[in-house]
Write a protein that binds this DNA or RNA. Structure first.
Lengths: 209, 209, 209, 209
DNA sequence: AATGAATGAGCGTTCATTCAT
DNA sequence: AATGAATGAACGCTCATTCAT
């Protein structure tokens, strides 16, 4: 039965995404892709004319799920640390779930960091995409802090942008440490780490009120 | 004689280190190593019986230079933010320089992150080494904060361990972003980023005194 | 309807001819054919059931244009060297032009020799076609020499068949050298070479009158 | 047993030469080379770092045998048509034999023409080598005609250079026809063709004395 | 201690061809 | 008549590793 309407394309993308995140881009061979898709080499090449093109497509595919879900005016939703935590963790949870759906049952091994670094090395264009993603995440945090400020939940004179930047870096650092330390990354570990980091940040922030 | 043998070993290690940091472990071939050392394939195999063994050796070799130089009692040296910044940056600077010396004239392309991630994927043992290195860095920061606390430079009731952890994560996050954004990593970029991050951290810490 | 079908067939033939002459048979892929015709793989296979069948068809198609245009009784038209040259060059010119028309605007890259050799290797039947073509060219020359003989333009006792064979070989040799030496074969180069070769031949022939 | 002193290299060259002449450059795969040499793919790549480098090396290897054997002053040896024929055929014979020796027992399938054309297409440098080879052959013929002229064996006023050029083209043409017509090229066929062509040429030359 | 010849598995990619639609 | 999805063999080439010298 000849597939239509991009179904095969999506099968390849999902398989490639899982494999790339598990083993890294370089380490994934067409043999692996064949094994996981059940398709022939030729079929894969029919849809993506090179491994690099596949990488770029997978990347864009991934970005759809990594995208900060469109949170409408976080500055209105965040009133205190509790609502901040709630919103942030819910948002991340949604990300993971939309990502999980993409995986279509594959194991969620999630070595995002290695994959991103390799992707950047391979194709300049992907660097820009990642940079934009990171900027969006920072902006999201900034808006949250704006909400907090309005409710006097952060020290007077604090700059939401600065706080956002700081927390963002901490979150990134924490995530990175996870990649170094964990072997079988699970969503729960990430969520726990995010939560701890946010709490740590607020502890510091409020220590001297 | 023995001396000479050790010398060859070191030649290989230095070449491998440069190449691993530049291209990543997987991407480096024996061909590359031959090109940079001027030695034969057999000679390299004579000193390291596999690529993985070479990786481990290079890693240990690298760790010597990455090692937090033995700073004697940082808690005695740090009195205020200025002396904190000074000590931290000087320490990092020394690290870079000892590393530069190892490179023996090679270009300092420094994709540490990719290399670390690949190394961890390749060999479990290396994960432990990295984890220890990170712990040492955190401890160093903690001792610095202890010095600050003694001089009442941080809010009363603040936990030096907590502050250390937070700053450490921010520094890691900042370093990571650098790898994503920079192309030609230079020592200067790292130093500048470290400095900015520290200053940001203190701005937040002192905002509400 | 039927017309249209024949038209597609001709589109494919023309594209294949150009490509075969430019890159050689083996080097031309269906991808190339798709690129030049704008048709799909399936469409080409619909008209020619294999690459070899396409080759044979292209070959026959080419032969129509390579065919010695039906020169009526060249022995009546050739009276001296001047009329010989004129007739021969005009005939060749017509060949080129009919061929150019076939190309439908494509660049006239004309590596006939490579194409012929590959074609022969691929399909025994084509060898016969080429052999017949060469025989026809020789016969044409022979008839010309008969005309010359009638007007006593060649040494008494000379055999027109022998002269034809000799000149034919020279022309073939000259053409071959062109393929070795030229990069971008142009009709002008061929015409010039033919002319020079004929003149050389007559110089030798008449040296001792 | 590890081979030394280029023996393996020579094995590869001889095998490649036979295969290239038999099937043409493009058509020969590393699988073919492995089959004929008994070596592994890696071994061949150890000696020639690409197929193109192998082509160039084979070409130079071939040229040693194709080289017009150093005939000392042919103009002194050639006195009449008989001695001309003798010298020319002996020289060709020597070429074939030195070439046969290179083949080391392989079948003498000799599709020189296809191989040359492909080689030229592949690598510009080889074109120059061929051109020089052809020039040398022409010069050899010219010197022979000089000898004939000295003994008044050619029409007064005839230019040895012109005669050489003409005969050379005829020989090339004759050789080319052979490639089109023959399937299993044998030395004998070539020798016979050369001889016939020379005789034809002289018949024409002397027809009108 | 050091060389470099040899191995063979595996890589990404291209190819002519088939066939359901 | 025409499309394009799918196949799988074959391609040139690189790789880490072994080993006789």
């Amino acid at each position: 039965m000849r597939e239509k309407s991009g179904a095969t394309r999506r099968v390849i993308l999902a398989a490639a995404l899982q494999l790339f995140l598990k083993k890294g881009y370089k380490e994934v061979s067409y043999q692996d892709l064949i094994g996981r898709t059940g398709l022939s080499k030729g079929a894969i090449y029919h849809h993506f004319k090179s491994k690099e093109e596949l990488l770029v497509s997978v990347f864009e595919f991934l970005m759809q799920s990594m995208q900060q879900p469109e949170v409408v005016q976080p500055e209105l939703k965040v009133k205190d640390m509790a609502s901040f935590r709630k919103l942030f963790l819910e948002t991340k949870q949604k990300q993971f779930e939309s990502f999980k759906k993409m995986q279509a049952g594959g194991t969620l091994k999630f070595n995002k960091l290695l994959f991103f670094l390799e992707a950047i090395n391979e194709n300049e264009k992907l660097k820009k995409i990642i940079t934009e993603l990171l900027a969006k995440e920072t902006l999201f945090l900034e808006n949250c802090f704006r909400g907090l400020k309005k409710h006097n939940q952060i020290p007077r004179g604090s700059d939401p942008a600065l706080l956002a930047k700081a927390l963002f870096l901490m979150l990134q650092g924490a995530e990175m440490i996870l990649f170094f330390v964990q072997n079988n990354e699970q969503m729960e570990n990430f969520m726990k780490t995010y939560d701890e980091t946010i709490q740590r940040f607020f502890t510091i922030l409020q220590k001297n009120d």
